[in-house]
Design a protein around this nucleic acid. Structure first.
Lengths: 347, 347
DNA sequence: GTCCTAAATGAAATCGATATCATTTTTAGT
DNA sequence: ACTAAAAATGATATCGATTTCATTTAGGAC
């Protein structure tokens, strides 16, 4: 155990604590000979500075909280990887806050900001709304948001062009000859859902196809929501031939419902999701989906947040619209052609 | 922002900092009237105690580090959920340390123990070996280990009976009529692998079947390791009809290899994994696997670790052999009978 | 050797909360 | 009303590292 403190090291080296600190932090001037002595004492005592004391003194914890709505969803896992790697490389650690799909838990975690356990927080969740997030910065805390655009000068955010995602998916489905295309939104009030719906409508309009409200329903971004949502959609529209789910988790729910109803995917109903979670490449038929640069968003926003925390102005800009890419796989192709890209699993 | 400190609250309430502290912690006696005044001041100033100062003073951080070898693997995600829920309920937060399959990163994270950023650490990884873990406790740190047995009085650990897992799986495969059953181990030196191999051999012996060394190979617990391992096995044993992979990730790699080699699962080669990760229920054919009480292990060990950190003796015992359960699904059943349990995805 | 400046070092305050110990106030008993 | 005991409160040291400011030492010029 590292029980020795700076003063112990100082005594052993025959200097004051201040000098040891100078050696540790390479601040101030220290004679080469003294430095050697101190370094040797540190070595011999196996001394490591106490981070809590440093935190208190510096008023920094070098920790970032990361709030995700469900850590089990691999979509988040990859973002987290991006966050953690960037954070670590800038000497920060991350505290993962798994809200387990409960908004109340997200509120609980905000206390980590308030009691200064973390220097800043990254929100990767559809639960907490914009107003609540803005209230946090107005209160003086540093935060960043991944997955949506948020209108506030001090909040760095990264998000994809959701309208484009909706448009791309529906364009593709129309091209495949579908005429009754359902849209399964996430939370009705989630911006992602709303914008993807916008893209959906835009695609229909450009194709000169009618917008049928009955073809719209919403889930909760989870598998069960997708399952139930599809059952409702199907009940109202026995003739639907394609479903655009606002994320892959819900698409999995659609698969489950189809299996139960003995509906063939994609022969009878085509399915497209969003996020490109890992399962999509393993499930049969492979799920068509939309890839977003998850890792990159995580890394980028972490950098921005740390910039922000250190009081630096945003050098270029504070928000980032990232590129998304439609991945056409088996679930939306009647003829089962496959390119290498769409084979089972990566190497 | 919460900029006010205890002394500011004290001034506003017309008392000393000590009294405010007493109100906050319900320690010591405070007159009801004073208490009200202090509480009002706290309310008005929106005061929250600074956790860093509390940490320094109490020599506790109320944080637990959780080292996992790869956060993206859902096997770990569920354990983490168990850990986090138990930790939160005991007022601890967790710092997730994703080693990203690099042993060096695990070493890096040990510094969080040394610099007292965390009070204790839970290791859920096959990378760090027993000797290294024991060295940590010998150094005075509190740790717990999930996924293996470790012989040290002060290390709580949870693990499954790996011999039984191996036995159960191979018994099942033998019962299905297989005679050339390959075993794809994880890291050759990982205890899990070794014990599962033991179970494998035990099953063969009891069935009066020969042990053929060529049928053993090892991967790295990852998909790619499973893929490559199977290719080697197959090369040596063109007649193998079943593969027991030491975990599901590797089984996924076996699937990939089979797909490429146009080998039918389970008709030509049966596959069984271990862990029951989420994908197993979505992939076709559903993967037979072994369920372990992941969430429960996480929660239990967290409780034990916190006990240990607080200097309490282990009330019952320090190590826990948990029950595992073989889940027979499509990948190891030639005739595709299915029970409800084995259908696609849970509700 | 003396003096002056620059380099090297140390003493002490600080970060913010808490616990100990001392002091003041209240209560109860006579 | 007086005293003893109990209750309430405050002053202060502490946790461990850092930083400012003061002081000492070293180095160079003369």
């Amino acid at each position: 155990m590292n029980e020795s403190k700076i003063i112990d090291v100082a005594k052993r080296a025959g200097v004051s604590a201040a000098t040891v600190s100078r050696v540790l932090n390479q601040s101030g001037l220290v004679k080469e000979k003294t430095k050697k002595r101190v370094q040797q004492a540190i070595e011999e005592m196996n001394y490591t500075p106490n981070a809590m004391a440093q935190n208190l003194r510096s008023r920094k914890t070098m920790k970032i909280g990361v709030v995700v709505s469900d850590i089990e969803v691999s979509y988040y896992a990859e973002i987290i990887k991006g966050i953690e790697n960037m954070a670590n490389s800038l000497d920060y650690n991350i505290i993962i806050c798994d809200a387990q799909n409960l908004k109340t838990r997200e509120y609980d975690y905000v206390s980590l900001l308030q009691n200064r356990t973390v220097d800043g927080m990254i929100f990767v969740t559809p639960l907490m709304n914009n107003k609540e997030l803005i209230a946090l910065v107005e209160d003086g805390y540093s935060i960043a948001v991944i997955g949506r655009f948020i209108e506030h000068e001090q909040i760095p955010c990264a998000f994809t062009d959701n309208v484009k995602i909706g448009k791309d998916v529906v364009d593709h489905l129309i091209e495949q000859g579908h005429e009754k295309i359902a849209f399964l939104s996430g939370y009705a009030d989630a911006i992602d859902s709303y914008e993807r719906l916008e893209g959906y409508m835009k695609a229909l309009k450009e194709a000169g196809m009618p917008f049928i409200p009955e073809l719209i329903d919403n889930g909760d971004f989870n598998e069960s929501g997708g399952y139930e949502g599809f059952l409702r959609l199907r009940e109202r529209n026995a003739d639907l031939t394609a479903v655009f789910a606002a994320n892959d988790e819900m698409a999995l729910g659609v698969y489950k419902a189809c299996k139960e109803l003995l509906i063939q995917v994609p022969e009878q109903v085509a399915v497209v999701g969003v996020d490109n979670i890992r399962i999509t490449r393993f499930i049969t038929p492979n799920l068509s989906t939309v890839e977003q640069p998850k890792y990159a968003m995580g890394a980028l926003l972490t950098e921005k947040l740390i910039d922000q925390m250190n009081g630096n102005e945003f050098q270029d800009k504070r928000y980032f619209k990232v590129e998304s890419k439609l991945l056409v796989r088996e679930s939306s192709l009647f003829a089962k052609h496959r390119s290498a890209e769409e084979q089972l699993g990566p190497g």
